[in-house]
């Protein structure tokens, strides 16, 4: 049977690459004594696939992997056992059975939501001058915050947002405007929902960089903190609930 595992990748393991995480889960299944299904051939390997690789340095509360396991195992017990062996860096949120004939998480994936913490980029600008309102209270929207909000509006008004994308076959231009479903700024973070998947994927740092390009604030990739919050199938159904039991 196929199961779908939702897990969180926390701060302490955020520097792991995708291949490291794949290997890590293989061994977690073994340590948790989950009876897996294997591919045929002389070097059989566990049948598992991830919804979407997560970049190095990014944390997540909504990672997904599908795995084929032998029939007749208690999924709640598997969830508990996985949490016992996966260490502090990961948390298995849920283990659900996937319906017969359903798409794999990878194929079902349509959208992803992220929150991008930009406070470090903003604080440089404002370290010395805290703006206060007439009563001496900190202003709810500091000037640079207003700038970010305005930049988001400016961006969304555009009919096309051409971005140069580097791939193996060279550079080509992509219009990312249709890939933006939603974006807003609040309390030091940019919240975004964008298209995801193998064909139509928008990276959160690409969008963040575009927003900053419409401001006077300098952008450094290493100063933003990205968290993936959830991955969705069509109609914004979280993968956890999409064609699962």
């Amino acid at each position: 049977m196929r199961i779908r595992i939702k897990f969180a990748k926390k701060e302490s393991v955020k520097y792991l690459g995708h291949l490291d995480i794949m290997r890590f889960f293989q061994r977690c299944f073994n340590r948790a004594e989950v009876r897996m299904e294997y591919s045929a051939g002389y070097n059989p390997h566990q049948k598992m696939s991830f919804a979407q690789p997560l970049g190095v340095g990014i944390v997540s509360e909504g990672e997904y992997l599908d795995a084929e396991i032998a029939e007749g195992q208690d999924l709640d017990a598997i969830c508990k056992r996985l949490n016992n062996v996966c260490g502090e860096g990961f948390e298995v949120v849920s283990v659900r059975a996937v319906k017969e004939g359903a798409q794999k998480a990878m194929a079902a994936l349509r959208f992803a939501s992220y929150r991008v913490d930009i406070r470090e980029l903003l604080s440089d600008e404002s370290a010395d001058e805290k703006t206060v309102d007439e009563d001496g209270n900190p202003e709810t929207l500091l000037p640079f915050e207003k700038e970010i909000s305005r930049a988001i509006n400016d961006l969304l008004i555009e009919e096309t947002i051409p971005v140069l994308k580097r791939t193996k076959s060279g550079e080509h231009e992509v219009d990312i405007r249709p890939q933006i479903i939603h974006v807003h700024y609040e309390g030091g973070e940019i919240f975004m929902t964008v298209t995801a998947g193998s064909n139509n994927n928008l990276k959160p740092d690409t969008l963040t960089e575009q927003i900053f390009s419409k401001t006077t604030i300098e952008y450094h990739r290493e100063s933003i903190k990205i968290k993936r919050e959830e991955l969705y199938a069509e109609k914004f159904v979280p993968l956890e609930d999409y064609q699962t039991v």
Binding site: Y15, E222, S223, K225
Partner: peptide
């Protein structure tokens, strides 16, 4: 710091 870890090969 993060800016160094994000800029070296295999930070883990």
């Amino acid at each position: 710091p993060e800016r160094i870890l994000m800029n070296v090969e295999k930070p883990a």
